[in-house]
């Protein structure tokens, strides 16, 4: 039963996909975001800076709100909310990064403060902007179906920059994530690469916010990577796997949400959460049954 209704939903989606430009743009957005998400999300997870990514993403509301305010109230047509988001995310990344490097003991306080202040600023700006209710919901929970062809150009540029930087500095970022002290002793500018990683995280957060919104960004940034982490033995394998998993989630979530008119972002996140849980349970079961998995520890030869 459930299977056939899924099938119907998906075939309805494919039919609509051929027909409607906005669905094509939404799918492209999801797939693009998945690439950045798999690469940068992997660094974020192995370096254990998920809470920093959380801080950055919530600050974004301030930037989006300010841009929208300027656009609607003051008529600055160029002040696209996505520029506001990018500026706010990068500013938050740099501030958190510098605090984390210079005053480690205040890091969590600063992240918490920025988190709340960024959101508060966003809410203030939006409340002074006509028609704010719709905007606010879109920013918080995603509006992938509203992506315009102008947006997509921006997203492609951002995605290309993030992916290029993430791959161009692969060995340096890998070393900084695995053993920062050793990397520093090899003459690497560890502070630079740490800030670069946070800026890449900021850009990826902006990409993902288009898909699932501010509140749910962390789920999409970390869940595909966490699932990939169960199977990958090397960092680049984790990235490739996470990209693939994330693409499946976004495409499937979009397809499943279209027919019953569900919010796409929430559907994607629920899918990701369910898949993570299913993986944990499946691996747990496999572990309990003896002889199913090779022993992890190699005996001393």
């Amino acid at each position: 039963m459930a299977f056939t209704s899924w099938g119907c939903t998906m075939s309805e989606f494919f039919g609509a996909l051929m027909q409607y430009n906005f669905l094509q743009l939404a799918l492209i957005t999801g797939l693009l975001a998945s690439v950045a998400c798999g690469i940068v999300g992997t660094y974020v997870v192995v370096r254990r800076i998920t809470y920093i990514a959380g801080g950055i993403s919530h600050c974004v509301l301030g930037g989006m709100g300010a841009a929208r305010y300027l656009q609607v109230v003051h008529g600055f047509a160029w002040a696209h909310p996505m520029y506001g988001a990018l500026v706010a995310a990068l500013a938050a990344a740099i501030i958190i990064g510098l605090v984390s490097l210079r005053a480690k003991e205040r890091e969590d306080t600063v992240i918490g403060a920025l988190w709340a202040v960024g959101m508060a600023a966003g809410v203030l700006f939006i409340s002074k902007t006509p028609g704010y209710g719709e905007d606010l919901m879109g920013y918080l929970f995603g509006n992938i179906l509203m992506v315009s062809s102008h947006d997509i150009k921006l997203l492609i540029g951002l995605d290309a920059a993030v992916v290029a930087a993430g791959l161009l500095f692969f060995k340096q970022l890998q070393a900084v994530c695995f053993d920062e002290e050793f990397a520093r002793l090899r003459g690497l500018n560890v502070e630079f690469y740490y800030l670069l990683l946070l800026c890449l995280t900021a850009a990826t957060v902006v990409l993902l916010i288009t898909v699932v919104g501010i509140i749910m960004v962390i789920a999409l940034l970390t869940l595909p990577v966490a699932i990939a982490g169960f199977f990958a033995r090397r960092l680049w394998q984790m990235m490739m796997l996470a990209i693939a998993i994330s693409m499946v989630f976004t495409a499937l979530g979009l397809g499943l949400s279209y027919g019953p008119d569900l919010p796409a972002g929430s559907t994607i996140v629920i899918l990701a959460g369910a898949a993570y849980l299913a993986t944990v349970i499946a691996l747990g079961v496999a572990k309990i049954r003896p002889g199913k998995r090779p022993k992890a520890i190699v005996p001393e030869d």
Binding site: V46, F178, A232, L235, Q237, M238
Partner: peptide
């Protein structure tokens, strides 16, 4: 000091 779950060869 190393994260035992870090995926690296």
């Amino acid at each position: 000091q190393f994260d035992p779950h870090f995926p690296i060869s």
